[in-house]
Structure formats: structure tokens, C-alpha cells
Write a protein that binds this DNA or RNA. Structure first.
Lengths: 207, 207
DNA sequence: ATCTGATTTAATCAAATGATTAAATATTTT
DNA sequence: AAAATATTTAATCATTTGATTAAATCAGAT
């Protein structure tokens, strides 16, 4: 554990590591204290409880996971055609840097969905109306095929995020190392963009 | 809890319910016993330990999750073009009936990936060589664009499975009920098939 | 240097939890 | 029916675990 961090930062860094690896229920406060190189009581002195510490980590994780792309996706000055490659490139890069984030968030979503959704909505970055408005407008102009806006977004999310969720399975079944996995998802960038845009945009929309 | 099941079946049904809802670490054996309407000691009498009970549930879950589609995907007598719609239709139906399965498997994958992969490989149904062979053959014939076989499989899996993983988020953000969610994934069936096949198969391959 | 408040620790508590035991009850076999 | 075996229960154990306490140490102000 780096020496140049103050105690609070050390604890948070350790907590992030342990929580992301094991999830809330399986993580023990003693693990976190040991990882941080401090005493168990000190953890409670700084954060009051495991729950409170966890919430801070979760909120920061949600911020990392969403705020890297959502502001641009909510920007009416960025066209729909520009948003697709931006989303795929940015998100892939975020996930390469934080590969454990999707499983962490999506598995904790099962235990306390309301806290996560509430945190997301407080972070005013989540505003789908602009994106969905652009989709419906493009459809009215005949530039895009009929498709539920949510299904459009789900396609981008699925194709980008899912490989990181299934990563332990993929790497074992295909017997590949971390570097090869990174190469796989890098190759997916171009593929996802071509597949999604080729499917949703009409000839008129491609012009 | 149904009265016409014997004790072992009652315990397993209760365990499945609790484990799938909470995951291994957060599930308590007392929850399972109560859900089954039996005493805690009886659970250990039948299954020896929480761990052993969990492994049975996990192995059955893996069987449900994989063996419904993989045998056909490994069948050399089924063409690649037929496999895509079969996969999407069958998998979506399995997931509609077992919506909690993906999060359960993929989040436990983090804790004990080797057990899961080992269980999968013992279940001889997992044989990707036929599918991957068909992909490479189609590419050599010019019927399919160049694409890593794993990325082809990942596209199908991502687009089909991911919505079920993100379901709590989707339903809250879009304010929809279970019936509307089912409708959404039903609509995705046709979309996924059209998008994936439109992208990977060349004009020659579509003939 | 001393006082004061913040930080850190060792020790301990209380509750939760997986598991066991021994006894009671039900079922099957003889 | 009696014996033997299987099933079920209440009570208890031992460990784990989140949290607290009281004392010790450190840092900065006076």
C-alpha cells in the first residue's frame, strides 16, 4: 500500500480493491484493514461502518462507470452518428482500465437496486431524453430503421460491456492471457461500430 | 412450499430460490431452511454443508444455462445460418423462464471461476470446435466476413444475455413492468438475428 | 516543554452463522 | 407388534465478523 496516501485514502483504496474483487457480502472489514495496512478499529473510526464505506466505493464506481460517456451522450450538439463511435471507443477504454467494474455494479444491483438507481439519478449526468429524442427524430426523417430507443442503447451496452462480465469464462475457455483479451476487445471496437451503424442507419442516414 | 415434494426436493428448491436471489455469500442457511419449511439441522443432514448444497444448485444452473442450446450449436449437421436464429430464439426463451440465471452464474464466476469452468467442461456439452470450424469454413468460402470466431459467439451472447443482467436498471430507468420487459426482449429476437446475420454474412453467404 | 485534540492500537463485545449433537418421532422391515 | 432404520427437531457449539471501548501515541498549538 502506497505510503504517500493519507489514512483515509489508504482505506478507500483497499476497500475498492476488496469490494470489487469479492462483492459486499463476501468482503470482510478485516480484509480491507489488512489490505490498507491499518487496524480494524481505524476503519470504523473513519467510515463508521462497512455499509457506509461500501456506499462511498459504490458511488465512486458508478461515477467512473457512467460519467465518462453519459455527458456526451446527453449532449444535443453531438450528432447521433458521432455518438456511436464515441460511446464504443470511450467505454471500451474505461473498461480496459477498470475491468472489474461491470460485474461489481451489476451484481450489487441485485441486492440493492434502489440505492444504485437513486445514486445514478442524483448524479444529474443520466439524461436519456436527448439521445432518445435524436433517435426518434432520425427515424421520422427515415435515416434510421424503426427500433425502440432502449433497444438501440442496449445493443451498444451489450456488445461493449458483456465481454468484461464473461471475461473469466472467455479467458479460460479460449486459453488466452490478459494481453490477448485486451486485443480481442480492441478488435471489437471497429466491429461493434460497423455492425450497429450498418444495421440501424438507412442508406439515407448513411449519406 | 409445495407439499408434494420430498424433503430433499423442498430443500433444493428453497436453496435455488435463495442462492439465485442473494448469491452464495449473502445467502444464509437459515433462510434456506425457513424457505423450505424445515429445520436448519435437516439441511445439513441432507447436504452436509452450505458449500455442497450450493455446488449442486450451481451445477444444475449451469446445466440449464448451457445445455439448452450448446448441443445444437455443436451439431455439425446444423448449418451456421440455421444456428443463429436457433441460438437467439432458444436462449431468449430460456432466459425469460430463468431471468436470474445470468447474474447468478456470472457473479459467482468471480469467486470461483475454476469450479464453474471445470463443471462446464465435465458436462461434455461444451464443444466449440464444430461451431468455430463452420465459421472458419464459411470465411474461406467467402460467405462470411473475417471475424474472430470468439467475437462471433460473443456478439450473440452479449446481445441476448446482457439485457437480463441489466434488467433491474432497465426496468427502473424506463419505468416498465415485467410484462413490458418480456415484450422488449421478444422484440430483440428478430433484431438480433437481422443485425448479426446482416453483418457477418456476405452477399454470397446470404444467397 | 506542555497541553490539547486527532490518530492509532490492543482487547473485547455482541450478534450472526455454519455446523453438530442427542433425543424424539416417523417409517420401514422383520 | 417389535426391531431397525430413517427423518426431524430443539438446543447448543465454535467461529466469524462488524463494531466498540479505553488506553496509548502522535502532531500541532501555546
Amino acid at each position: 500500500m502506497a505510503k504517500d496516501l493519507n489514512t483515509e485514502q489508504k482505506i478507500k483504496e483497499a476497500a475498492r480493491k476488496v469490494f470489487l474483487k469479492k462483492g459486499f457480502a463476501a468482503a470482510r472489514t478485516r480484509d480491507i484493514a489488512e489490505e490498507a495496512g491499518i487496524n480494524l478499529a481505524l476503519l470504523n473510526y473513519y467510515f463508521r461502518s462497512k455499509e457506509k464505506l461500501f456506499r462511498q466505493i459504490m458511488e465512486e464506481s458508478l461515477h467512473t462507470f457512467f460519467s465518462s460517456v453519459l455527458p456526451t451522450m446527453s449532449d444535443p450538439n453531438v450528432s447521433l452518428r458521432d455518438k456511436v463511435p464515441f460511446f464504443v471507443n470511450s467505454y471500451t477504454d474505461v473498461l480496459i482500465s477498470n475491468p472489474e467494474l461491470p460485474v461489481f455494479i451489476l451484481s450489487e444491483l441485485r441486492n440493492d437496486p434502489d440505492h444504485i438507481v437513486q445514486t445514478l439519478q442524483m448524479n444529474k449526468r443520466l439524461n436519456l431524453s436527448v439521445l432518445f429524442g435524436q433517435i426518434m427524430e432520425a427515424q421520422q426523417k427515415g435515416e434510421m430503421i424503426p427500433l425502440q430507443p432502449w433497444n438501440f442503447l442496449l445493443n451498444l451496452l451489450s456488445l461493449t460491456v458483456f465481454p468484461f462480465i464473461a471475461r473469466p469464462l472467455i479467458q479460460r475457455l479460449s486459453d488466452t492471457n490478459d494481453e490477448q483479451f485486451k486485443q480481442l476487445v480492441e478488435e471489437r471496437k471497429a466491429m461493434i461500430k460497423a455492425m450497429v451503424m450498418g444495421y440501424v442507419f438507412t442508406e439515407k442516414g448513411k449519406g
